[in-house]
Every structure is written in C-alpha cells, then in structure tokens.
C-alpha cells in the first residue's frame, strides 16, 4: 500500500466561547472538530459526509491550512506541516488547494475571470512566468469545459455551474497534488450538478489528483468516492470503501443516515427499513460524554455514556475477512443493511 499523501492525526479545532466585552472570559468551547484521524492516499477520492455543523468545513480548512488546529498533527508526505509558516508553508500550500461550495460568493465580482483564475500565479510566479499567464488561463478554461474566449468576462455573466467551473480552474492553476472540494455542487440544480461531478471525476482521473470530496449528499459521495468517512459532531465515526459503508455499515449513525435518504426507485423503496432518529444533533459546545451519538442512538446502553468508542475495526469483525471489517466507532457495532441491493442495473 502506498504512503498517504496527507495524514491527519488527532486533529482538533475548538473555537472559544467567551462572555464579557472588556474582559473576555472563556466560558466554554465550540468543539467543531474534536479528534480526527484520517489518511488521504495518492490518487484516491476520499469522501466525507455528515450533517450540517458536524465539522466538515472546519476539517477541510485545516487540511488546506486556512485554519490552524487547536491540537493534533497534519503531515504532508510524511513531513509535519502543522506549524509551518512563511516560505516553507507557501511551498506546501501550492500543492493543496481548495474549491469552495458557493459559486455565488466565493468569486470576486470586480475581477475578470482571467484575473481570478490567474491570481494564484501572483503568489507563485515560479509556476507561470508573466508572459505566459494568459495562455495558461485559457488552457485552464478549456480544461474545465469553458470557452477560452470568456477570459475577460465577469463572474455575474456566468451561471452557477459555470462559476463552479471557474472555481475549479482556479484550484487547478498551481497544478496541486491535492484538491479539497467543500460541497462543490450543493448550490447547483440537479441537471447542472451532474455536469460538475463528471468534470471533477474526470479531472481527478486524468491528472491523478488526490481529491477530498465533502458533501452532505450521500448518493453523490458514493458516486465519486473510493473511500468514505462519516462524521458526527466533530469526529469520524465510520470509515471504509464505498461498499463497506453503503452496503455493510456497522455504525448506528451511518445506518440511520443511509436509511433517511429518500430513494426515488419505487421498487427499491418497498424493501426498505426506515430508522427514524429522535431529536436533533446536540450542540458542539455540549458534546455528550462517552459516545457522542448516544443521545440519539436506539442501541445506547450504560457503557455508551461511560466509555468513548474509538475509531477502529470492532472486535467482533476483526477476525473474519469481509466487508464488515472496517473502522467503526461503536461499542455495539453490528452489520445492518439499510440500502436495498441495486436491482439488475436498470
């Protein structure tokens, strides 16, 4: 197995909650990310799913060094980059780029598309010498399926899907090895979503990128990812290859999440069990003791309040080979199939 290109070890991001205006007193913390261990392998697409507020964007920002972790270590090709700054950071950052969710607000409205896509070259002139930039930008426009003639247009002259392509072109400008895409299609309509997903998948394949694809949409994540991590309240609770997570989930939260996704196929729906969770996700400022999912878990027992379940292959699956053998942070992990088997691919 190849060495991971990006390693996250015990990553934590806490935002202090303060009271008082003059003398700020810390009264607690929003535990946005609360201990995440993940590896990104070269050339793979790692999907991350979870409900709103579970820490996906915060984790993404730590991966690209837009946020500094409160604790934990981030390694790029084996090198600890957590505390890098200045020139050393710049060198690494070039290789890890981000694509944002919102194509409407993440592009500067007063800059032309050419300037937006070419901006990273100002910071990294070594990638594209001055005289060569327009040509490079045109190439990038072409790569993402936009007409290179549009180079002098402004963002408002483009549709949402096209703006998302501009964001992707900008992310690709420095020829990074890693792209972290945070909800890159969530703001788009279905018909346009498909165009952008196909583009990202093809780019990943053809350029050999390592892609982190973050979304709250489980179907889209399955479609594009090699491996998937499921997050709940700042932690990864289950991790595996796509069929391990979707067809053989062992964590109750993953099972509930999968069973809640509405499925359009009327035949598939008939053989489907719905797990309705009670209540809402607790606030990340008040994370339950023990297993953080226990306030909504239908299987919770006393042990769940006392002991934090770690993300590891559960003992009962450790010995046998099979798709249930993958990390799951639950004391009482059990296989439960909730997504009906695909019929003869219709």
């Amino acid at each position: 197995m190849s060495e991971p290109i990006l390693e996250m070890r015990g990553l934590v991001k806490h935002y202090p909650l303060t009271r008082g205006i003059l003398f700020k007193k810390q009264i607690g913390a929003v535990k946005a990310v609360d201990g995440v261990d993940l590896d990104l392998l070269p050339g793979e697409t790692l999907g991350i799913v979870g409900e709103s507020g579970c820490g996906k964007s915060t984790l993404a920002k730590m991966m690209v060094h837009l946020e500094r972790p409160t604790a934990g270590v981030l390694r790029y090709k084996g090198e600890d980059i957590t505390q890098l700054s200045g020139r050393a950071l710049k060198r690494v950052r070039r290789n890890i780029q981000m694509v944002f969710q919102d194509p409407y607000t993440s592009l500067n409205p007063r800059m032309t598309v050419g300037d937006i896509i070419g901006e990273p070259f100002d910071i990294h002139p070594e990638v594209a010498p001055k005289g060569d930039r327009r040509r490079r930008v045109r190439e990038l426009l072409d790569v993402v399926g936009l007409n290179p003639e549009y180079i002098n247009r402004y963002p408002h002259q483009f549709s949402g899907g096209q703006r998302q392509r501009i964001g992707i072109a900008r992310g690709l400008a420095l020829r990074p090895e890693i792209i972290v895409a945070d909800e890159p299609v969530s703001a788009l309509d279905v018909s346009v979503q498909a165009q952008v997903i196909n583009l990202l998948a093809a780019l990943q394949r053809e350029l050999g990128l390592s892609l982190v694809f973050i979304s709250h949409d489980l179907s889209i994540v399955r479609h594009i990812s090699d491996r998937v991590g499921v997050m709940y309240l700042g932690r990864v609770v289950e991790l595996g290859r796509d069929e391990e997570i979707y067809d053989h989930p062992t964590h109750p939260y993953t099972q509930a999440l999968l069973s809640a996704v509405p499925v359009p196929d009327p035949l598939a729906r008939e053989h489907r069990e719905r797990i309705l969770l009670g209540g809402d996700v607790p606030s990340p400022a008040h994370i339950p003791s023990g297993c953080r999912f226990r306030t909504r878990c239908w299987k919770a027992r006393e042990r769940c309040a006392l002991e934090v379940p770690l993300l590891a292959v559960p003992a009962e699956f450790r010995l046998a080979e099979g798709p249930a053998k993958h990390p799951s942070a639950c004391h009482f992990a059990e296989e439960k199939r909730v997504v009906p088997t695909a019929g003869p691919s219709d």
């Binding site: 279905v190 498909a194 479609h223 979707y246 996704v261 499925v263 997504v339 691919s345």
Partner: peptide, 9 residues
C-alpha cells in the same frame, strides 16, 4: 442525472 445511493455510478 441523479447519482444513486445503491450503486456506484
């Protein structure tokens, strides 16, 4: 054009 939950597309 919608990805499906029950198969990798």
């Amino acid at each position: 054009s919608i990805p499906r939950l029950d198969q990798k597309g």
